[in-house]
């Protein structure tokens, strides 16, 4: 080579081997962000339903209710108080609270209205029984004691309700996880399709890389990096929108009967972790999907 002075190499890093997909990535970004948003909402919804169901079943499983039926000639309120006293003597019961007629009227007020009940209308009264933590509900012992005392009382362990709530929570969890899996699968399929399209659009670059001695893994890694970043960015956007939407839902005036079905946003570490992981999961899904798609396509070439 000549003795002339060698110019210094250009400063700065090496340029990206894959050309920028000016504008072509935008629709994909949008689709991925929407999928991540839906996945976050599904996950938050499932999580909210499970937490709600756990709270409900926990309340139901750590308490019993004694219903005192009105019997002609007997003081129902006195029977309720006696039932409470009997209950506190049973092993495993921490406390029992007898409720009077006012409580019973308040319970049926939503259906019959306030002040519409005749004073002589017989109403069953309730006794709330609180169990010791970890104790099995002593339903039979309590029922026997109440029967022996001659009270027209029946003990309800809420098993029917707790079972229904548990089944609903399980269904919500299964639906949430299934929806999450479906959305992730859809995202992976969309990314794989986009990666293949990107590969086909840049076949000139791929040829140049191949003929320069690039291994398939090297080329697949280029696409993997590009789609990881796209997945990360769209995942961040989708997760942020999910946060905003769930905050709006939580702050809105939600009817009580809808609470079970709507995600209940709370700033606890689990939800934060879940939303924080969403972009990473999205990026990882995109990267893996793109790598597999490109590697498969490259294998079909020589």
């Amino acid at each position: 080579m000549s003795d002339r002075q060698i110019p210094p190499p250009p400063k700065g890093g090496a340029g990206a081997l894959l050309p920028p997909d000016a504008g072509r990535d935008r629709p994909l970004f949008l689709v991925a962000a929407i999928l991540v948003f839906l996945a976050c909402i599904a996950a938050l919804g499932a999580r909210g339903a499970i937490v709600q169901a756990q709270a409900w079943t926990s309340d139901l499983e750590t308490s019993l209710t004694i219903q005192i039926r009105p019997v002609e000639g007997r003081d129902t309120e006195a029977d309720a108080r006696q039932a409470a006293e009997i209950a506190t003597e049973i092993e495993g019961i921490a406390a029992a609270t007898a409720h009077g007629r006012d409580h019973a009227e308040a319970l049926i007020a939503p259906w019959l209205g306030q002040d519409n009940l005749p004073d002589d209308l017989p109403l069953p009264l309730l006794v709330d029984v609180e169990l010791n933590p970890g104790s099995a509900p002593p339903v039979e012992a309590l029922q026997s004691a109440l029967d022996e005392a001659g009270l027209a009382a029946s003990v309800d362990d809420h098993a029917r309700w707790a079972g229904a709530v548990k089944r609903a929570a399980g269904l919500a969890r299964t639906l949430g996880i299934s929806l999450l899996a479906l959305l992730m699968g859809a995202a992976a399929a969309v990314i794989a399709f986009a990666a293949r399209a990107s590969l086909a659009a840049r076949i000139d670059v791929i040829d140049a890389l191949h003929l320069s001695g690039a291994e398939d893994g090297f080329i697949a890694q280029l696409f993997q990096r590009r789609f990881f970043m796209l997945g990360l960015k769209s995942g961040t956007a989708g997760a942020l929108i999910a946060v905003i939407v769930s905050l709006l839902v939580s702050w809105g005036d939600t009817p009580a009967d809808m609470l079970f079905f709507l995600p209940r946003w709370s700033m606890n570490p689990f939800e934060l972790l879940m939303l924080g992981l969403a972009p990473l999961l999205s990026g990882a899904t995109a990267a893996l999907s793109a790598r597999l798609a490109v590697a498969t396509d490259l294998r079909q070439r020589w």
Binding site: P10, P20, D207, L209, S212, G213, F218
Partner: peptide
């Protein structure tokens, strides 16, 4: 078959770059 999104330097260096 030059890559127009890369500089002359990066084009010339391509076979070295792909080896890592």
């Amino acid at each position: 078959k030059l890559l127009n999104h890369l500089s002359v330097f990066d084009n010339a260096a391509l076979p070295l770059r792909v080896t890592g």
